[in-house]
Design a protein around this nucleic acid. Structure first.
Length: 350
DNA sequence: AACAGTCTCAACCGCCTCGAG
DNA sequence: TCTCGAGGCGGTTGAGACTGT
C-alpha cells in the first residue's frame, strides 16, 4: 500500500518563503506553540504544506537558530564527528549548539568536503586519497623519522594521515636540504620533532585503545590477555578499566594533563591544557570557541561513557570510530612550530 | 555591459522510525 | 499485531548570487 503524500492539495505554494509568510508562521507558533504541523498552514492562513512550515521554523525562524559563519572550532568538530559518524547530520548538529542539521550538511558539502579534498584527504574515509597521496601527503625523509622521541611507544605509521613537512619544502631537486622559506631548516627539524613526539604519543594511545576495544568486542578481554582485568566489570555494568584507560587517552583529562606536562616541559610550556590548546592556534580565543571545544571534548567522552559498557557491536564500532576521529583530529590539526630564536610556540591548527 | 559558468544554500522530496489506536 | 499519521532524516534540486571572460 503506498502512502499518501503529506503535501497534496491544490494551490499549495512552493519555493522561497516571503516575509509575510514568515510573520504569519512566527506569530502562530508564538501563540500556539510547535506541533500539529499538518494543521498549522490552515490555522495560520498559509498556503503551505505542514512539513514545509516545520522545516522553515526549525531551520530558520526558530529564535535559537544560529546563523552565519562557522568558527574554526565548529569546523573541527564537524570534521571530527564526520570521521566517526559519517553523514549523520542530525547527530553532528546535536553537538553544535544552535546549528541545524541542514546548515551543517550544506556547510560540509560546500566548504569542508572541498577543503579536505584539496588537502588530499578523502572526505568519506578521512584517509589520504590514494591517487595523490604521494604528492599531498609525502613521506618524510628518514632523518626526520629518526628525530622522533626515542621511546617504547609505537611510531606513527606513515601510511595513515600523519602530517609532515613537505619533501618539496625541505629538499632541492637533487635532494639537498632547502634553507629558504619562512622557517630555517633547524626550525623545521625542531618543529617536526616536537610534533612527532606529541603525535606518536597520541597515535600509540589510539592504537592501544583500538586493540583493547577490539579484544573486548571479540570477547577476548580477560585476565590472561590484560593485566588490568581486575578493574573490569563494575556492578553497574560499566567497565572501570576501559573507562579509566579511555579517560587517560582524553587529552583534556587530569591524567593526560600530566602526560602533556611531560611533552610540554620540552617545549617550555606549562601544564595547563587550555593554554596548550591556545598555543596550538586558538588566537581567536573567545567564549564561543571555548564552548565549542568543550562540546567536542564532552561528546567524545560522553560517547565513551555511554558505549563502553555496551555489548552492541554497532556501538563499539561507533566508539572505535570516535577514537579514530579524535586521533585523526589531533593528527590532522595539531601542527605547531617551535621557534628556537624566540623560544616560543607558534600556531597552527591547519 | 552581457553572457556563461560556478557556487551557495534554502527548500523540497521521499523514505524511515516511532507511537497511538 | 497491524495500520496510519506525525515528525525526522539525508539526498537532491534549483533560484539567485557571484565570478570570470
Amino acid at each position: 500500500m503506498s502512502r499518501k503524500p503529506c503535501c497534496v492539495g491544490e494551490g499549495l505554494k512552493k519555493g522561497a518563503w516571503t516575509t509575510e509568510e514568515d510573520k504569519k508562521l512566527i506569530s502562530y507558533i508564538h501563540e500556539h506553540g510547535e506541533g500539529g504541523w499538518r494543521n498549522i498552514p490552515q490555522k495560520a492562513g498559509l498556503k503551505r504544506c505542514g512539513k514545509s512550515c516545520r522545516l522553515r521554523w526549525t531551520n530558520y525562524l526558530k529564535p535559537e537558530v544560529k546563523r552565519g559563519e562557522f568558527s574554526s572550532e565548529e569546523e573541527q568538530i564537524i570534521i571530527m564527528l564526520h570521521a566517526s559518524h559519517g553523514n549523520k547530520w542530525s547527530v553532528i548538529a546535536r553537538h553544535l549548539p544552535r546549528r541545524t542539521d541542514n546548515e551543517v550538511k550544506n556547510y560540509w558539502n560546500t566548504h569542508l568536503k572541498k577543503r579536505l579534498i584539496e588537502q588530499g584527504i578523502d572526505p568519506v574515509t578521512h584517509k589520504p586519497l590514494a591517487s595523490n597521496s604521494n604528492s599531498t601527503v609525502p613521506t618524510p625523509p628518514e632523518n626526520l623519522h629518526s628525530l622522533a622521541a626515542p621511546s617504547s611507544d609505537k611510531q606513527y605509521s606513515r601510511s595513515s594521515s600523519m602530517p609532515s613537512p613537505s619533501v618539496t619544502e625541505l629538499t632541492n631537486n637533487d635532494g639537498t636540504l632547502v634553507q629558504g622559506g619562512s622557517l630555517s631548516h633547524k626550525k623545521r627539524l625542531k618543529k617536526w620533532s616536537s610534533t612527532s613526539r606529541l603525535l606518536n604519543k597520541v597515535a600509540a594511545k589510539a592504537t592501544s585503545m583500538k586493540e583493547i576495544l577490539s579484544a573486548s568486542m571479540e570477547g577476548s578481554l580477560s585476565a590472561t590477555t590484560l593485566p588490568y582485568a581486575s578493574y573490569s566489570n563494575e556492578e553497574d555494568g560499566s567497565n572501570a578499566f576501559l573507562t579509566n584507560t579511555l579517560a587517560e587517552f582524553d587529552p583534556f583529562s587530569q591524567s593526560s594533563l600530566y602526560s602533556l606536562h611531560e611533552i610540554s616541559s620540552d617545549l617550555n610550556m606549562d601544564n595547563d591544557f587550555s593554554h596548550f590548546f591556545e598555543k596550538l592556534g586558538r588566537d581567536d580565543h573567545n567564549e564561543e570557541n571555548d564552548i565549542n571545544v568543550e562540546y567536542g571534548h564532552d561528546l567524545l567522552m560522553s560517547d565513551v561513557s555511554q558505549e563502553v559498557s555496551s555489548t552492541s557491536v554497532d556501538n563499539q564500532d561507533n566508539m572505535l570510530g570516535n577514537f579514530e576521529g579524535w586521533s585523526n583530529y589531533l593528527i590532522d590539526h595539531a601542527d605547531f612550530t617551535y621557534d628556537t630564536e624566540s623560544d616560543s610556540l607558534e600556531k597552527h591548527f591547519i
